[in-house]
């Protein structure tokens, strides 16, 4: 009964919890970003093998944020989680020039999935606190983002470590999601 009323109210008030996936290669900073968004703290993390899922509240909007492991052997499971996803936060290690091509390939095959056709894409060019980080425009070029025609997307420079850029990125995401819903 409680479930019925709360779902009725959320329909009336439109505070539907939105589903966000954080994806990207291993070591990009996905888990650090998740907890930075949730509690505003930098936490020591270990490579994610299962998944993390937390409720993040931003500007009175509630998100259920899923952080999936990015190691080669677990990437094939990403697609199992695509159903009903409102937005994807794609995290890229801006210093990892060697694997930028792999990151692009994973991004492209993800965006081809039917289930993600309507999902908003937020790319985070992460680790901008490092001296050898590529600029967002270089990351954007390496990922081939300009070729995205029908998708609502944007790229932001971030540092999960210092917190730089995360607010701007989330602000954009909230607006992009509200524009759609």
């Amino acid at each position: 009964m409680g479930g019925f009323f709360s779902s009725l109210f959320s329909k009336l008030l439109g505070d539907k919890e939105m589903r966000i996936l954080i994806l990207g290669l291993d070591g990009a900073g996905k888990t650090t970003i998740l907890y930075r968004l949730q509690v505003g703290e930098v936490v020591k993390t270990i490579p994610t093998i299962g998944f993390n899922v937390e409720t993040v509240t931003y500007k009175n909007l509630k998100f259920q944020v899923w952080d999936l492991g990015g190691q080669t052997s677990i990437r094939p499971y990403w697609r199992c989680y695509y159903t009903n996803t409102d937005a994807v936060i794609y995290v890229v290690d801006s210093c990892d020039q060697d694997r930028m091509g792999i990151s692009r390939k994973e991004l492209v095959s993800m965006l081809e999935e039917e289930e993600l056709k309507k999902a908003v894409l937020l790319v985070m060019a992460n680790k901008q606190d490092m001296p050898n980080a590529l600029s967002p425009s270089k990351v954007s070029e390496a990922l081939g983002l300009s070729a995205l025609k029908t998708r609502t997307w944007s790229i932001f420079k971030t540092s999960a470590k210092t917190g730089e850029g995360l607010d701007d990125a989330m602000e954009w995401l909230v607006n992009a999601l509200q524009g759609k819903h």
Binding site: Y35, Q38, V39, E41, V43, K44, T45, I46, E54
Partner: peptide, 9 residues
């Protein structure tokens, strides 16, 4: 008040 979300490795 601060939730420590993760134990350290």
């Amino acid at each position: 008040d601060a939730d420590t979300p993760m134990p350290p490795p």
